[in-house]
Structure formats: structure tokens, C-alpha cells
Simulated scan of single mutants.
Amino acid sequence: MSQNPEHRILLVHAHPDDECIGTGATMARYVDEGVGVTLVTCTAGEMGEVLVPELEHLAFEKDGGLGEHRRGELDEAMKVLGVTDHRFLGGFGRFHDSGMAWHEDGHAIAAETIPDNAFWTADLNVAADELVKVIREVRPQVLVTYDEFGGYGHPDHIQSHRVAMYAAQLAAAPSYKLDLGKPHDVAKIYWTAMSESRMRESLRQLRDSGDTETFKGMEPDGKLPPFVTPDELISARVDGSAQVQRKMDALAKHDTQVEQDGHFFSGAESGHSWWSDEYFRLVKGTPGKIGADGFEEDLFAGL
């Protein structure tokens, strides 16, 4: 892993808790290595489901206030991971959670009714400029965001991808809005991924153990959802085995969003969890040293 204190990584996520699920171990590991870690969260997750009965009044369709509560959850999660630079795109409340609906094929889509100031309908240039300012200030060598489908189709994940990719391009342009900062070219850009072979292995172990509920509807040899990535498209695997407990502890801080006895935590305790390994697709930059398993072991490899 990186040992260079001048290394900096910027992660662009849609809602509080997304950062822990897909990149929590990576963030914790780079913090441990002395790398500068910056998290940008694009919305406060105001439309999220509330899984704690005594906090159900915070839901958007009831009294509201979930975004402010999730802001606190994110603060606590980042304390666990050791991330001291975390911010909301354009400041807290600048862009509102867009909500979502489920398509009959099992992926997320935009809901029929979208709240005012939804991130999904934000002007791309306006939102990208907010991130250009961060890129030019932080000057990361590595940027991490979602793929073009946002993993599973959530409109805010898709918009996060669009904003991150466009902002990275604009930030590098030597003549673009110099009032937003000195131009900076991000050397490597990665999209988050879940390994198909690892998912199938985990599903096989789950089903062999008699667990039919975790990842219900997914089978070891069956069709997998779009957030699962064929291994041949994956470039890097970060081993966060030394940080996985911090990852799970941080995820638990998002208590309105994750069931404390749900599959995230039951999987971690069962011995067949793959939450410590986090996978990425390199979409800009040159791959660095490849490990024995065929993947880069460090997102800064080659820099």
C-alpha cells in the first residue's frame, strides 16, 4: 500500500452510509497509511428508509429531519474510520436526496415524484463546479466513484458518477474557470465494483450453511444483479482485513439505514463475509504493479 504522505484520495458518494459499504475498509487503510483521505457526500440521504422504529418520525413523508440525523451518523462513522476531511457537495443541504423506486427487473429507478432541489435534476455544470473546487483544493492523485449505472441504478448514484467524471475533466482544463482554483489533473480514476467470483463463492457458502435469507433471490450459479462486476473488468483489490472491524463499526453508526442483525453484520460474523476486500475498476490512468491474484493491490500503484 501507499507509504507516501503526499498521496491523496478523493471519494465521491451519493448518501451517508454508501461510503462504508463499498469503500470503508479502503478509507480506513489509507488513513492508517498516512494518506490524505477526502470524502464528498452529494446528498444528506433525506429520502432514506428509517429502520429504527423510534426514529420513524424523521422520514421525509412524515415530520422530516432525517438528513440532519444522517449528518450526525456520518460524523460518527468518520470518527471510527479516522477520516477527518469529509464534506457535503456544495455544503450541507445544497443538493437533496432524489429518492428512488424499484423496477420490476430488480434495479433502482427514479421515482415518479421527485423532491424540490433533487440531486438527480441538478444542473450538471452547477454540481460539477462544486466538485471542481474540491478537486483543485485537495489535488488528489486518485478519485473513486461509481460506474455509469451507479451500481444498481439509484438516480443519485448515477448523478454522482456523472458529476465526478465531468468535474475531473473540467478541473484539469487549464482555461476552465480559474476562479475555482488552479487546474489539477487526477492521475487515476476508479469505479467501485463487487467481484463476481467472490459473490458466487459467498453465496455458495451461505446456501451450503442453510442460510436462504441473506441475498435472497440470488443463487451461486444464477443470474446476478448489475452491481456485481465480472472479474475480468476489475483492476484492483484492496485488502482491508486489518481494517474490516472498523469498517463494520463505522457502518453500524448509520443506525437508521442498516439493520444491526441484518446481512451486513451477520455475514461479517459468519466467517464467509467478503466485506474486507474492496474491488475497483480503473477507468483513467495506467495500472501499476499487479499482485499474485491479478489485481493491483494499491490504488496509488505506479504513481
Rank of each mutant, 00 (worst) to 15 (best):
E56R: 14
G91A: 01
F88H: 05
K79L: 05
V83K: 01
L74F: 07
P53Y: 10
F88I: 00
E56W: 09
D63Q: 15
G72W: 10
L51Y: 06
F60T: 10
G93K: 07
V80P: 09
D75L: 08
T84S: 08
P53R: 10
G90R: 00
F88D: 01
L51K: 13
A77M: 04
M78F: 02
R94P: 04
V50W: 07
F60C: 13
G91R: 04
A44T: 02
K62F: 13
E76Y: 02
G67T: 07
E76S: 12
E54S: 15
L51Q: 12
E76W: 00
K79N: 08
V52M: 12
L66C: 14
K62C: 13
E68A: 15
G48E: 02
R87W: 00
K79Q: 10
V50N: 10
H57L: 09
G82R: 00
G82F: 00
L55A: 12
G45L: 06
G48D: 04
V80T: 11
L66V: 11
G65L: 14
V52I: 10
G90E: 05
L74N: 08
G72C: 10
E56N: 12
L66T: 10
E61S: 14
F92S: 05
F88G: 02
G93R: 07
E76D: 14
L51W: 07
G65A: 15
L66R: 12
G91Y: 02
L89G: 02
D63N: 15
R71N: 12
G93S: 05
A59F: 06
H69F: 14
F88E: 02
E54V: 05
E46A: 11
H86T: 01
